[in-house]
Amino acid sequence: MRELPAGAITGCVARLCIEANRRLPADAERALRGAAEAEPWPAARAILSDLCRNLDAAAETGLPICQDTGLATVFVELGQDVHISGGDFYSAVQEGVRRGYSAGCLRKSVVSDPLRRVNTGDNTPAAVEVRIVPGERVKITVSPKGAGSENMCRVKMLTPAEGEEGVMAFVLDTLRSAGGNPCPPVVAGVGIGGGFDTVARLARRALLRPVGSENPDAYYAGLERRLLEEINALGTGPQGLGGATTALGVMVEAAPTHIAMLPCAVCICCHADRHAAEVL
């Protein structure tokens, strides 16, 4: 059994909040810069070039990439041989978010109640997802996600008869109707299977994969390629103003489901697929 002070978790979450908001993971940055070079439509290329210059500006100034520093989701893989000492685990995570958003001059975008809407002033509470894993390590990933793209996400309970075709049509329809709202070029996480709640988590977690990575199952890797091609054939383009680059990547995750069900979720992320991780 390994002892891990709660304060170490707080410090780690605070660092990751700042890091995730200031610089993109290398794969996400590479995808955006690659798209800017490959885009054939001049107006679209100009927008993509502005987005690349924005990454440079964030690196130079220490400002976050985007003012919408999001609702933070903290993914924790907690080794079962770890004992957290000196404080409550969940409070330690929230304190980390509080400190990171304050010290990093990140925007506080959380309201305490969905209808009465008073800003909590410190961007808490963050969503916390814990998985118990073997071992005595703790892996923490902080992934902030902005509202522009989050508001375009969808879940649909398809029927088994609709099959692969139904899934393709739903994903494409979701991207088509999202248009310029989610700050394209987007990264799309697609969940297939599970139940109503698990399918949304699958789609959200897919965004933690490197942009451009393939599902290890060749069948789903093929589905990812076809979806990417069809999304980019929509012509939506950067910011919805037209062009060849509507999506930088599509990541599909599948899970077992019920004999009567075919849930599908599309978690749309903007061009900034932000996340940062550390192992304690």
């Binding site: 502005d50 987005l51 210059r53 924005n54 500006a57 100034t61 985007c66 310029g180 910011q239």
Partner: peptide, 13 residues
Amino acid sequence: LAAAGGAGALLAG
């Protein structure tokens, strides 16, 4: 007028 969504650091300048 449309500003580039997500270009917060650039526009701050």
